[in-house]
């Protein structure tokens, strides 16, 4: 365990964890739009910045992104200094100029007292804040179907050649992880569309309910050594079968 001080309170943190985790355990609310436990920290939105210092630093202070900074013995962390708040406001103000219609951004900015951006609204704005969560989760899933395209202010997230992505299996991880709900998909129980690519959904033989896409199933069977007939029924049916089996086992026990 490592001893650190957060906003004046002495707390213990786990060796190797990042500051953000320790801060959140204290129920201190700091925004962190590009952070998600499922993927490696990235440090792009800069909202989670905090002030750090140590007794032996002779008053020298540093500002770091808490999502990326590993806890250290003796660290003194302040999450809401005037400078830190000023920075968060500026960032949210800038996000409000680049994604003016995002409800998530609007709400968060309002929490910091900003209801209208003080900057020029960016032409052709979208709700994408380039947090990189979608591409990171897609990489982690093993598909790498989408990526960042271009650079600088023109950067965007897109499939290769901006065509329906060949490597996409329609798992929807990107859409679920997107903090601003920018990534859209449709799903009518038979067919699913995301990134302009259409997928057919498998159906559970027992319930008739849709499960996952054919492509996703094929991938899991091939690369994750999942039995071929596993996807014939859905999770619910799997669980039911299991429950049934368990019930039988206990039944036998009683009978004996």
């Amino acid at each position: 365990m490592v001893n650190i001080t957060i906003n004046g309170k002495l707390v213990q943190a786990y060796e190797g964890e990042m500051l953000l985790a320790a801060i959140r355990r204290e129920n201190i609310d700091i925004p962190a739009l590009c952070h998600h436990e499922a993927v490696e920290p990235y440090g792009a939105c800069r909202l989670c910045m905090v002030e750090i210092t140590k007794n032996e630093w002779d008053g020298w202070k540093n500002h770091v992104t808490s999502c990326l900074y590993p806890v250290e013995e003796g660290l003194i962390v302040n999450t809401h200094t005037p400078t830190v708040i000023e920075l968060r406001k500026t960032i949210l103000d800038l996000f409000l100029a680049s994604s003016p219609h995002s409800t998530v951004i609007k709400k968060l900015a309002a929490e910091y007292g900003i209801t209208r951006t003080s900057y020029e609204e960016v032409p052709d704005s979208t709700d994408c804040i380039l947090c990189g969560l979608c591409t990171r989760i897609c990489d982690k899933m093993g598909f790498s179907a989408i990526s960042a395209v271009g650079r600088g202010h023109g950067k965007e997230i897109a499939p290769p050649l901006k065509e329906p992505p060949p490597d996409c299996v329609g798992c929807l991880s990107c859409a679920y992880i997107c903090p601003t709900h920018y990534i859209q998909f449709t799903d009518n129980g038979k067919e699913r569309t995301i990134w302009g690519k259409k997928f057919k959904l498998l159906r559970c033989e027992k319930t008739g309910l849709p499960t996952i896409t054919e492509e996703f199933a094929a991938y899991l069977i091939k690369h994750r050594e999942i039995p071929e007939d596993y996807f014939k029924i859905n999770d619910l049916s799997h669980r039911r079968e299991l429950a049934l089996k368990m019930g039988q086992i206990t039944q036998w026990g009683r009978e004996a």
């Binding site: 591409t135 598909f143 790498s144 179907a145 989408i146 990526s147 960042a148 395209v149 499939p159 290769p160 050649l161 992505p165 060949p166 490597d167």
Partner: peptide, 8 residues
Amino acid sequence: VPMSKVYS
């Protein structure tokens, strides 16, 4: 290498 990385 995934095509998305090449395009990126």
